[in-house]
Amino acid sequence: MQKFTTLTSPVIPLNLDNVDTDMIIPAQHLKSVSKLGFGEHVFSALRKMYPDFILNQPAYNTGKILLSKANFGCGSSREHAVWAIQQYGIQAVVCSSFSDIFFNNAAKNCLLLISLPEETISKWIDASLADNTLAMTIDLEAQKISFMGETHSFKYDTFRKHCLINGLDDLDYLLSQEKDITTYEQKHCNLSR
């Protein structure tokens, strides 16, 4: 996994509440038996329906930080939604709130999610829609996020922070415990078949 310490990037302002996982990755793209190839389909239905959708605008669509509103990631539990966002190149999603399942799926895949107060989010979305050159900086170590000359603190889970900063996903973290696992297995050999 890529380590996440600080990130400075233009933002993709998605001015919507309740962005659901069907919008993020429509069901017809779930047929794959691999975990790759979802990035190109991210928000595909919205991109098709609305020519001026934010991801169709070259001034915005290379951002690595997605900015959206409340209850992001609601609906179906599909983990593909997280994979699609990541494979598109987005490294962090900043919203006023996230759905529980999406939050957990994101954590398992090292997609950084940051929640901020609604007023801040609304203001930032408006500002970035008005000026596509504005960049955002996220400092995960210090748990600070800066935009438009303002800096805010954000809360983040201790374990998830450890993983992101060290570039470990859950699997890397588990594999880093190889010695402990082997010791455990030696003590409990009666359990194996």
């Binding site: 859950d170 699997l171 973290y173 588990l174 594999l175 415990q177 190889e178 696992i181 297995e185």
Partner: peptide, 10 residues
């Protein structure tokens, strides 16, 4: 995936 690789999960 985690359990297949490490016999453990978090």
């Amino acid at each position: 995936t985690h359990a297949m690789a490490s016999s453990c999960i978090l």
